[in-house]
Simulated assay, not measured.
Amino acid sequence: MKKYAFNELTVFQYIYLIHGAQVGIGVLSMPRELAEVAGTDGWLSILIGWFAAMAVSLVIIGIMKRYPGKTIVDLQPLFLGKWLGKVCVAGIAVYCGFASFTVMANTAAIVNTWILSQTPIYMVVILLAIPAYMVLQGGLRVLGRYAELIFYLTLWMPIVLVTVLPKTNWLYLLPVFKEGWWPILAGTKSTVLSFLGFELAFFLYPFLQKKQYAVLGIVVANTLSMLIFMNITLFSFVFFNPDEILQYTWPTLNLWKVIEYRFLERMDIIFLAFYLFYLSTTSFPYLYFSVFSSSQLFGAADHRKHLGIALLLGILLLWLYTPTFMDLLKWKQWWSTGGLLFGYALPVLAFVPIWLLRRSVKE
């Protein structure tokens, strides 16, 4: 019997889990971050980041194909031995837990700034922790269904955004390559990090029912994320002039603020309310695999106790200390550094010895 048969995922759930993990807080600030470095040529940085994420994603699938019944947690003791393997599993748990905590803290800060300005940040996190526990206690299959549901519930967003087209000026994008390739390549750092989430394939592959579609699934997930990033970035670049966009912390929210209907004025509030679901599809998978790793590390069959402890620790930390905007930026940078190591460096470094080992066996 398969070790993870109870929590098997369909191809669509696999796609939406990876896509949901990628499209998080980066969408809100990406247009400004790209404009600061690459100007209106920043949309080209998205294509380069997408290509890099696709290449590393295929490397991850290539590694996992050789061990179809094992997650990255199972592989660490196999490759590194018992004790060093446990240290690496602990590091993976910390990485995933910190990523989830960073997304939740940023989500609470956005809600605190945009809607509930008089509400303490820890109270907002408590409200976010309740659905997190309700979804994640059911295991990966429930999480996959949740990611699939949220994807369909938010399909209307790109369609509504088209209503700003009459107010746009596409001449802002010209000329292309204003300052050459260097600013575009420099902006790629932001986009490469925004595609983080594909590394969860290290965990998801053993749960996939039809593993022959793993490559297709991760390609579709990365491409969906690229289209979302491109959509919101291009609309921001042609709506705000090149100097104006630099004035907004979250230009995406300011873009939605100008959309009005006769029966509805604050469309940005509706967008943010639905976007909170999208943010949850980023934080929930990281939180689940953090407690999945920690429970495997301590030999616990039930992850719910670890889940409850992780959520309580997050709430307690934000109750004792309210992070500033600079703190949140610093946490994102730390997560980005960990993501570069776990998401990009680790697959490439692991693939080389595995390939050499298989080659020597064949010879």
Rank of each mutant, 00 (worst) to 15 (best):
W156A: 01
A132C: 09
L127N: 09
A350Q: 12
T71M: 15
I259S: 03
T71Y: 08
Y205V: 02
I115V: 15
Y278E: 15
K167E: 13
I184D: 01
W156I: 05
V37K: 00
L193Y: 12
L307A: 00
F101V: 01
E148N: 09
K70S: 10
Y288N: 04
G138K: 14
V176D: 09
L216D: 06
Y321D: 10
E148D: 13
S283L: 02
Y248P: 00
D74I: 15
E260P: 02
V215W: 12
Y275H: 12
L340V: 05
I270D: 08
R141E: 13
P323S: 04
I245C: 13
S290T: 05
V220G: 02
Y146E: 14
F263W: 04
V103E: 03
V176I: 15
M157W: 12
N231K: 03
W170L: 15
Q209C: 08
F6W: 11
V124W: 03
V23S: 05
L341N: 10
I269E: 15
L311P: 09
I150K: 04
L136K: 04
M64H: 05
Y67G: 00
Y14K: 10
N112Q: 12
G39M: 13
I259W: 00
G197L: 07
H19V: 14
E36I: 09
I46H: 09
S57D: 07
L297A: 14
P183C: 11
G91M: 08
E8F: 02
L17P: 01
G69N: 08
V23Q: 06
F6L: 15
L340M: 13
L185C: 06
V164R: 04
G139W: 11
G26E: 01
D268W: 07
V219R: 04
K167I: 12
L356A: 11
K3A: 09
V215S: 15
L356Q: 06
V258K: 02
V87H: 06
F284I: 11
T168P: 00
T10L: 02
A300C: 07
A273F: 08
N241M: 04
K257C: 08
I354N: 12
L165W: 08
W335A: 01
W256Q: 15
L253R: 03
Y4M: 03
